[in-house]
């Protein structure tokens, strides 16, 4: 355990100098009921870059992601200690009881594509209408823009009234990304966005991530080390130590992949664990 703490503090020193930090967590602990899921996570997520969260199953990667937009609120038995800071704000204390304002700034894409069982148009129009865009022309132009950004306009632009459920898995996932982007969030959280997609769709989404990072801060959880190597600018490795998820190493992707500081990282990257 000492090694873990040592590595964490070393990394903090090393990374504090790099770029603008968009999101950071301090001593973040999460538990479901009495079961601890995350302990003492201090992660710094740089702006306008892709941070990949890697690690084995059960290391708390997805739970961590859910802390960042307070999706953890959906389970009533969760307790969170420590803090998550988005820019100047502590998302639990400063943004109050209602997480709506936070979720406008921090969008999320899930492991399985989850379009609503409505038309493509309505999927994108619903969040826009809720946040005040009522003018039909404005809706049309924002929706077209969102679909173009994820490369769907050429494929579905002429059938926006069709049910979103008629799209292929990869198209559905890109629609979900477009839907998350129509609210112009600052951060996009992606929880294993390609794990249920075929290689072609995966490549498409990865290319998209590469384009989006110029405008958004992206945090992507992935099981796939090769994917992390392809898309990530920064990497954080989570580990399950004694049943609790911990962050054991973080840093620029090139550094972590080539010169890991922690023994566990070395073994994990070499596929020995």
């Amino acid at each position: 355990m000492d090694r873990i703490t040592e590595a964490t503090s070393y990394i903090q020193e090393q990374d504090s100098s790099s770029g603008n930090i968009c999101l950071c967590t301090e001593s973040l602990c999460l538990s479901y009921g009495t079961r601890a899921a995350l302990e003492n996570v201090n992660l710094r997520i740089p702006s306008r870059a892709v941070t990949a969260i890697i690690g084995p199953s059960g290391s708390g990667k997805s739970s961590f992601l859910c802390c960042l937009n307070r999706m953890t609120d959906l389970c009533c038995s969760t307790t969170i200690e420590g803090s998550v800071r988005l820019g100047e704000h502590d998302i639990h204390r400063d943004l109050g009881k209602n997480p709506i304002a936070l979720r406008r700034r921090v969008g999320m894409v899930f492991q399985h594509p989850n379009p609503f069982p409505f038309s493509i148009w309505k999927n994108l129009a619903l969040p826009l209408k809720h946040h005040g865009v009522r003018n039909k022309q404005e809706l049309s132009s924002v929706i077209e823009q969102a679909l173009r950004r994820v490369g769907l306009w050429e494929e579905v632009g002429d059938r926006l009234r069709d049910s979103a459920l008629t799209l292929s898995g990869g198209q559905q996932q890109r629609l979900c990304i477009a839907r998350a982007l129509v609210l112009e969030p600052e951060v996009l959280l992606m929880d294993e966005p390609c794990s249920s997609l075929d290689p072609l769709s995966t490549k498409c989404i990865e290319t998209l991530i590469g384009q989006l990072k110029n405008s958004y801060t992206i945090v992507v959880v992935t099981h796939d080390l090769a994917q992390a190597r392809r898309v990530a600018d920064h990497v954080a490795l989570f580990w399950n130590a004694d049943g609790v998820g911990r962050l054991i190493e973080q840093g620029p992707a090139a550094r972590v992949f080539q010169h890991p500081e922690h023994e566990l990282t070395t073994s994990y990257l070499e596929g020995q664990l």
């Binding site: 969008g107 899930f110 989850n114």
Partner: peptide, 19 residues
């Protein structure tokens, strides 16, 4: 996942139920 998607899109509970 309809509920999760609505929540992640910053919808209020009333809007989610209605829409």
């Amino acid at each position: 996942h309809y509920i999760e998607a609505s929540q992640a899109l910053a919808m209020s509970r009333a809007y989610m139920v209605r829409q």
